[in-house]
Design a protein around this nucleic acid. Structure first.
Lengths: 224, 224
DNA sequence: GGGGTGCGTCAAGAAGCCATCAAGACCGGC
DNA sequence: GCCGGTCTTGATGGCTTCTTGACGCACCCC
């Protein structure tokens, strides 16, 4: 299910949006402040963020920067300000779209669909195949010799991240940020433990990994 | 250079846009009709399409469909119609953004940048190629004769820095500061040791380097 | 020719990183 | 409250990588 994070200090609007989105089978999370929004996003990375710029606790562009520091999630900005300068600032800070309040619900939904469609397109093929196992990113399943491999939630997050960047080294920081959250960027221990688990479950010879490659000092790479 | 295709039947607006974009170093192509636009796009695929919906020869959504049939290029729609239905129709047909005329030039440019930024993210960063090896900056990988060359973290940082400034001499201070930190700006020893390591691993004849060139007294240069 | 400077090479000890294991904490279902 | 699985955390040993100093060479200036 598509997870949407709403950040807006106007509780009435928040509720209206929330109801509308839930009725359309989105998985909705809501925050009233920028700080709460960033925290929620870190805990459970959303597929789309709808962000009101007029928050009481933080400047809107700072919230955008806080997200862009570690994720490429589409950000759709809402704002009462119609000036060009505000729009340019938000878009250049990393927002994907800018909608002026008051807005029509149908338009907002269409813009959300457009943003999600683009983001989905980026993810590429949903299945990664190797001679020894296959990773089905859409179904969240891993098969080896025709048998499903049972992965824990954390193992899956890590494998998914690596598989989506197959053949590219992903840095320690990035892995830790995406799987455990921004607070864990220097807990490299976690990576070792879970990479080891994945190797045990997937590699033909866990002692000499062929797919989950260590880039010493840099990160790990999934070679397809 | 970024190629932009403008499709609009209003010749005045077309010229104004064109001048503005060219001044910002975009490579601009213009079409007055939907048919001409589709033809141009097919001939020389653009990086971004700016499309006026009110064309004389075709319905706007048909132009969008004609593009979406074979390309994921970002489409930014211009329209005089401000109704929600028109926006929803265009966005759901495959447009990425919808700007109502009259619009501010700064806003349009910011929305173009946002669309291009997203599209660029999909492709990944550049690769530096030489006759003897290739440096993939995004994947953090180096290949030589089709075989991966194993680099340590420090070796990679140094090579990356040089590759990103290919064909330009980078000063000792700068290299040391970026790779080892500001406290090491006069530890020129480190550079010798690690440049030597890179030459051993990458140069066809490490004794007579062809790519990692010493600029005596100044710094080093990566010749591509 | 002599002294100085910058560069390339080498090697050995120090330091850091990685794989692995295991024990305790935590959390869910029953 | 118990039990199984999962997550966190710390300790260990092996290995890679980094740091450091020494040496030789080429070049330049005097």
């Amino acid at each position: 299910m598509t997870r949407v994070l709403l950040v807006d200090d106007d509780a009435t609007l928040l509720r209206a949006l929330s109801i509308n989105l839930k009725a359309r089978s989105y998985d909705v999370q809501a925050a009233l402040t920028g700080a709460a929004g960033l925290l929620l996003a870190a805990k459970q990375p959303p597929d789309l963020v709808v962000l009101d710029l007029g928050l009481p606790d933080m400047d809107g562009t700072d919230v955008i920067a806080g997200l862009r520091g570690w994720t490429q999630v589409p950000i759709l900005v809402l704002s009462a300000r119609d000036g060009q300068a505000a729009k340019v600032a938000a878009l250049d800070a990393g927002a994907d779209d800018y909608v002026v309040k008051p807005f029509g619900m149908d338009e907002l939904l269409a813009r959300m669909r457009a943003a999600l469609r683009r983001a989905a397109g980026e993810q590429g093929q949903p299945v990664v195949v190797t001679p020894d196992f296959t990773v089905d990113l859409a179904a969240k399943r891993v098969e080896r010799d025709g048998v499903e491999v049972r992965l824990t939630a954390t193992e899956w997050h890590l494998l998914e991240l690596l598989a989506r960047h197959a053949n590219r080294t992903v840095e320690h920081r990035r892995l830790l940020e995406q799987v455990w959250g921004p607070a864990y960027v220097d807990q490299a221990n976690y990576l070792r433990v879970y990479i080891a688990a994945l190797r045990r479950k997937l590699e033909p010879d866990p002692r000499h990994p062929r797919y989950l490659i260590t880039a010493s000092g840099l990160g790990y790479r999934f070679d397809a």
